[in-house]
């Protein structure tokens, strides 16, 4: 018997469309093992100086955003210094709208908790010279999301 998917395809499709609209590359894979395998290959190909692999806590469909728990500096730097960031995101963790992320943020901040949460939507960009859009000014030049369906 086929298991019914734990995510809403409409929401996931919107996430993919909007993430791609901000120059994020999205690859859909079947499960956790496939995601780990693909990430490991990407890391091996370029080396950890050039690729940072990070798990994503939540996705936001409307904005194509990865919401990343970056409390510790090491994880944070992995999304800042290398030229490529590889995110692993579970399809079931995608919420439809920006406003829907409030409970998650609150759970991380309430009761005196100390936290650092990063919303990342595509690579680093600027339009500061003649309004010409340029990618990768201080942060990554490429963002790759491995979207894990199962």
């Amino acid at each position: 018997m086929e298991k019914s998917p734990s995510f809403d395809e409409g929401t996931v499709a919107r996430f993919v469309e909007r993430a791609e609209a901000v120059a994020t590359k999205v690859t859909r894979v079947a499960d956790g093992a496939a995601a780990e395998k693909l990430a490991a290959e990407m890391l091996a190909a370029e080396g950890s100086e050039h690729v940072g692999v990070v798990r994503v806590a939540k996705g936001i469909a409307d904005t194509g955003t990865c919401v990343v728990v970056t409390d510790d500096e090491e994880t944070r730097l992995k999304t800042m210094l290398p030229e490529t960031t590889v995110f692993i995101l579970k399809a079931e963790d995608i919420v439809p709208h920006l406003a829907d992320i409030a409970p998650f943020l609150r759970s991380r901040q309430a009761d005196g908790r100390v936290s650092y949460t990063s919303f990342i939507s595509g690579p680093s960009r600027t339009a500061d010279i003649e309004r010409v859009s340029a990618i990768g000014v201080h942060g990554p030049l490429a963002v790759h999301v491995i979207l894990q369906e199962g």
Binding site: T63, D71, L98, Q109, Y116, I120, S124, G139
Partner: peptide, 15 residues
């Protein structure tokens, strides 16, 4: 933009 590339929420003095 629908959202900027980065939105950072900092709550407290972390490690």
């Amino acid at each position: 933009q629908r959202l900027t590339s980065y939105v950072t929420f900092i709550d407290g003095a972390g490690p």
